[in-house]
Simulated assay, not measured.
Amino acid sequence: MASATRDALLKLALPLVKNHGFTRSALSLAAMYSPSGNHTAPLNDMAVDALFGEGDEARRTLINAWLDDARASLRSSYSQDDVATSTTQTPSLENVLKTRLNKNEGVLEHLPEAFALLATPPTLSSLVFPLTLDPRPAISHSMSIAVEACQLSGDTSVGAAWYTRRATIAAVYTAAELHQLYSPTTAHEFLDQLLQESRALGTALDEASIYGKYVIDALRGIIRSRGILL
């Protein structure tokens, strides 16, 4: 029962992110939008802790729910009946990745802090935050998009080529998404440029350690420019 309530409230909280960000407040206010009408006031802190995690863990829960929903929405946007009947061609990789970038547009102002929070190990304090960014959540995020994009665009690579192809696309998408955070109007053009140079980019970022360093350096640059403090 608690799991069903949690999932329902998370779904209700997603539209609130645009105005309230990836915050505990968004989770708290979600209860007031329940179709059951059982809640006429926001959840208190104790209820938010119990359902979604204590402190910033609740925010991480909301961020990951939003990312999962965006990926599911990407999949459904290319599987609806009207789409299937309106075209006879499989969508291009470029179009799939651009569609995913477009899904960020409503919450762009909140994403830098969200990505920074995901990259911060939960057990470490904000005082050591600038030195302790963890690239693994960002890599997992971009790899999941790469796998989805390859499947939707009909990629048929197998074996080692399967992994290389997806690692390259993940690197391209990460770079385009980070670029989108500070230059939204040029994100599609930047993505096109990276895809054209994807062979060279894939070579440069194929190693996990190099890719991770790239992600962290980019995140740090955004954090400095935005003055984000967690």
Rank of each mutant, 00 (worst) to 15 (best):
residue 56 D to T: 12
residue 165 R to S: 06
residue 17 V to H: 03
residue 212 G to F: 01
residue 97 L to V: 04
residue 129 F to K: 14
residue 200 A to I: 04
residue 134 D to H: 09
residue 199 R to E: 12
residue 46 M to S: 15
residue 225 S to M: 10
residue 80 Q to E: 14
residue 123 T to L: 09
residue 117 L to G: 06
residue 194 L to C: 10
residue 84 A to H: 10
residue 23 T to S: 15
residue 215 V to I: 12
residue 196 Q to F: 03
residue 225 S to R: 14
residue 152 L to P: 01
residue 94 E to F: 03
residue 88 T to D: 15
residue 163 Y to C: 07
residue 22 F to R: 02
residue 162 W to K: 00
residue 2 A to F: 14
residue 224 R to T: 11
residue 101 L to S: 07
residue 24 R to H: 06
residue 182 Y to T: 11
residue 73 S to E: 14
residue 153 S to I: 05
residue 98 K to H: 04
residue 151 Q to E: 12
residue 77 S to I: 03
residue 171 A to R: 10
residue 188 H to A: 08
residue 165 R to T: 13
residue 147 V to F: 07
residue 190 F to Y: 15
residue 174 T to N: 13
residue 15 P to C: 10
residue 72 A to T: 11
residue 80 Q to S: 15
residue 196 Q to W: 01
residue 92 S to C: 06
residue 37 G to P: 02
residue 147 V to K: 14
residue 40 T to V: 11
residue 85 T to S: 13
residue 15 P to L: 08
residue 218 A to Y: 00
residue 128 V to R: 01
residue 112 P to R: 00
residue 135 P to W: 02
residue 53 G to N: 02
residue 111 L to R: 09
residue 113 E to S: 09
residue 71 R to C: 04
residue 74 L to N: 04
residue 17 V to R: 08
residue 196 Q to K: 11
residue 227 G to L: 01
residue 24 R to P: 05
residue 198 S to T: 00
residue 108 L to E: 02
residue 21 G to E: 02
residue 177 E to W: 15
residue 91 P to Y: 06
residue 11 K to E: 12
residue 44 N to C: 14
residue 39 H to S: 11
residue 159 G to T: 05
residue 189 E to T: 13
residue 166 R to G: 07
residue 64 N to E: 14
residue 177 E to T: 15
residue 3 S to A: 13
residue 68 D to L: 08
residue 210 I to A: 13
residue 186 T to C: 09
residue 73 S to D: 11
residue 52 F to N: 01
residue 180 Q to K: 15
residue 59 R to H: 05
residue 162 W to S: 02
residue 166 R to E: 10
residue 44 N to L: 12
residue 41 A to Q: 13
residue 57 E to W: 01
residue 93 L to F: 01
residue 184 P to G: 10
residue 101 L to H: 08
residue 150 C to S: 13
residue 206 D to F: 13
residue 168 T to V: 00
